[in-house]
Amino acid sequence: MKVIKIDKKDWAGGLDKASSGYRFFGPVEDKECHNFKELDKGELPDFNFSNTRLSAKSVVFPQTEAMFEYSLDENEADHHLMKECRKNDAPRAVLGIRPCDASAFLLVKRNFDNPEYRDPWWVKAYESTTFAGLACNNPCASCFCTSAGCGPFDEKGLDVLLVDAGDHFLAKVVTEKGRKMLAAAGWNAETDADIEALKKDAESKISSFVPTDKLKDKTTMELYNAAFWEEAAFACLNCGTCTYSCPTCWCFDIQDESKGKSGIRMRNWDSCMYPLFTLHGSGHNPRGTKIHRVRQRFMHKLKYYVDKYGDGIQCVGCGRCIRLCPVNIDIRKICEKMNSYEPKAGDCNR
């Protein structure tokens, strides 16, 4: 695959040139952290970050998203009918997304784009987006991407892989979509520069390794009934931080909100950490305790997903949930426990 050299002094100009064809999204520093947002005309993404506080998932899957609009006014012909909200599907490009966050979209895609149903909003937003990722030259101590089927230079979720090489970027063209974006920016200086050495160097800096190889060999019920959940869940506050910051968590809630005679049906991120998530109308709650909910989160990511798709865990190893958990619940430790679990006689049943 081709590698293009982009001199950093051509960076702003190229983006400006391409901005007629793309809406750009990128990391921007706000208060104490970086987060993704749509860039204003002429605004540059700030690449002076290790990773954004929240993942880039909101670019494709906003925390609050309008689905339909409706009128309750019986004088209008189409009252009480749901009409799809108009969305801006113009081509977009996410600049500086880390490889972990980009590959997360591939894991999430299995949920939103499957043989039976396609989620129109997610699919359209995803398909209209070009992912120009930024390789991680200095991964954090809490990153474990290489254990999660990903890596600091991983290309599989990307259209272009940008590597910061001091006074220039090396841009590896991964897909046709990526080639088009580079062309639109007028970056075309091909180079035979080798990024493999940089990649090896970055991978060697990953210090966390989490074994996942034995998860698939255990039955759901063995892991579900394992004795360690009470201890693992004790500290959990059941806040939604881990799920909201996670690039691979996709759960959502659907709500109608009316003002006067009109309103919208929207969806909002939701979290398996909240009791309300599964509460029946009758008052019965199938996941009524904190232990149920914590177990659900880890079982989903590390067992149900593994079994359902047969292609690894629902995690890219970005480490956000570890860094942001107010009580230091560490998915690496739980994964180790699950992976090495040997069922014992006398474990509680169900």
Partner: peptide, 11 residues
Amino acid sequence: ACIRCYACRNA
């Protein structure tokens, strides 16, 4: 910046 995660409430 609030993301309505309710960590403040739950802590």
